Amino acid sequence: MTALVANLPVAVFATAFVGVAAGAAWACGTSVLAPPPADDEEAEEAVEAPSPAYPRAVALVTALVAVAAVPPLAGALGDTRIDLGGGVYDLAGTGAALLIAAVVALLAGLLAYRRADDRRGVPLVPDLRAALRGEVYVPPGEEPVEPEQPAATVRNRGVFIAFEGGEGAGKTTQARLAAIWLRDHGYDVVTTQEPGATKIGMRLRAMLLDRETTGLSIRAESLLYAADRADHVTNVIAPALERGAIVVSDRYIDSSLAYQGFGREQPVDEIARVNEWATGGLVPDLTVLLEVPPRTGLNRLSAPADRIESEPQDFHERVRGGFRALADAEPDRYLVLDASRPQAELSREIQYRIREILPDPIPLGTEDATHTFPAIRDV
């Protein structure tokens, strides 16, 4: 309007309107770019706010360009007289320069709006009206549907706990003690192991651990362990978790990564991808890693060594280092314990950590039915 209407009151009004709009845009922009509150340490660490000097520099450069460019542009364009079919319109050079600036600003505004639009497909005007009323505009036909409340008898997903470690670390013992402790507290517990938790798994276990098995390639060994694990998850672990049970497993994916990956010096990432596909991406809620020097652990074995236990000392050292590397990569999922400590101390620490992830042993909705119980009064 300032560019096209050669009328002082209209120009003053239009200029004032542009100034108010620019002030509102400046206030919104500086608020968005403002750093988080000083007392919100988490937000302060998570978001690194841009320097407030940046928008000031942009505004200053824009003002300098306008002051330096508009007068020469107006002079270069000059005054133009346009015949409008019976009327004459005089467009001054200043008006032409302002008109060019308006077109540029309009295009920049449209681009900024598209970049900042957080509700694509929602009309702007109805959205503004709803915002002024303190509401959120919902397009017709997109009214939110209230989700159905789950039945009172539905339980939460179960908990998956895996025990890992080298030979003779005491995984089987601690897994059994943890399962007994959980059952004593009223939980539905499924204890399992790898390899050999299913009928197919027992056949695979015989091939994998029998010392008479010779000529088995490293890739075939990794794939056989993954096949056992796929059957194990499908037929044992997943059904138990779906009904809300707690699954305690003696070994899981990390054993393949440590033994076939680090121990056999094969690409750990490739073995991880195969096992992720085999298990559908199922990861334990807690992995208890029991560490013990390989020589000490192997000396604890009472039965004759199997094919894996018979591997040389340096193999078991690499396995131990592999377990430690996996634990260091995901410290929140692991509980790493020195397995040379007394058994009772280890059990207490394991129980303390398990308590942090346990669900309520009472089924959901049980408390909702207590209002039907008769009141107990003193006679």
Rank of each mutant, 00 (worst) to 15 (best):
I350V: 02
A53W: 07
A305M: 04
G215I: 05
L128Y: 14
T153W: 15
G297C: 01
G186H: 06
R183W: 04
L8Q: 03
I271G: 04
W181N: 13
G87L: 06
L346Q: 10
P267D: 11
E48V: 05
V67I: 09
R353M: 00
L290F: 09
A105W: 14
H232V: 11
V122S: 04
V292H: 13
D306R: 04
I100Y: 11
G186K: 09
D368S: 08
V274M: 14
A116Y: 08
G109H: 08
A272C: 03
L124W: 12
S255N: 12
V18H: 12
E242N: 13
P331C: 06
P37G: 05
D285E: 07
L301A: 08
R243D: 02
Y137C: 04
G281D: 06
L223T: 11
D332L: 01
D250W: 13
A102W: 00
V47L: 10
P139V: 02
D79V: 01
N299K: 02
N7Y: 04
Y89H: 14
R377K: 11
D285Y: 01
Q266F: 02
E317W: 13
V32A: 09
I253Y: 06
V154R: 15
D285A: 03
I271Y: 05
T296F: 03
R120Y: 03
P36W: 10
P374A: 06
D79Y: 01
A108R: 10
A344F: 02
D83A: 09
L107Q: 03
S217I: 06
H232F: 13
E265K: 10
R295W: 04
R300P: 00
A57G: 10
N299Y: 01
S340R: 06
I200H: 12
H371Q: 10
A130L: 01
A258E: 08
S249Q: 08
T94P: 00
I357Q: 03
R320N: 05
A69F: 09
E48A: 13
S310Q: 10
P374T: 01
A329M: 03
V20I: 07
W181S: 11
P52H: 04
N7L: 00
L216G: 02
L204Q: 08
I246F: 13
A21M: 09
D117T: 00
L98S: 07
T296V: 13
A76R: 13
